[in-house]
């Protein structure tokens, strides 16, 4: 039986009627047209679908839309208003993306890391990215980007 669901996505109140089995990522992509959040697997391994739910990084393929009832959701589209978030800018500067498919998940995950650990070491970054797979970059420039993004975020919050 269809259920109605309400949440705040990227600062806007949204609602919709979904099947109970509808995943959060399906709601974002198919109901709201926010196609920046990607689906790269069906076993919750790849991390292309990471968004923030109430400020915490979540794989949106592993959460039902109805579970996000009343939550504040941020997707890659909502990180910056027209410009680039410092983490997005760092990925650009350090060539931390190639095909771009894993990138939204990487960036959403990286920002959550910096919230937990404002100055992560290379090893800490690599371990944090356990749930995000990239096939293009070999991770080298992603790690560099996140280090630089963390530094920029520290500067921005000072």
């Amino acid at each position: 039986m269809p259920s109605s669901v309400r949440m705040t996505v990227n600062g806007k109140a949204v609602s919709g009627t979904v099947e109970p089995r509808t995943l959060l990522v399906q709601f974002l992509r198919e109901h709201l047209g926010l196609t920046g959040t990607h689906v790269g697997c069906d076993t919750s391994q790849c991390g292309a679908c990471v968004v923030h739910v109430d400020g915490v990084s979540v794989k949106s393929c592993t959460m039902l839309a109805v579970q996000a009832e009343g939550a504040k959701v941020t997707t890659i589209e909502g990180l910056a208003n027209g410009g680039l978030h410092p983490m997005q800018a760092a990925f650009h500067e350090h060539h931390g993306l190639q095909c771009g498919f894993c990138t939204p998940g990487m960036i959403m995950s990286a920002i959550d890391l910096v919230k937990h650990n404002s100055d992560p070491s290379e090893q800490e970054i690599r371990e944090w990215l356990e749930g995000n797979i990239c096939r293009c970059t070999g991770y080298h420039n992603i790690v560099k980007s996140i280090k630089a993004g963390a530094a920029a975020m520290r500067g921005a919050t000072k």
Partner: peptide
């Protein structure tokens, strides 16, 4: 980069 960084790429499934 800009379109990919901001979730505005257009992949086939999009």
């Amino acid at each position: 980069d800009f379109r990919f960084l901001t979730g505005q790429g257009t992949y086939t499934d999009d």
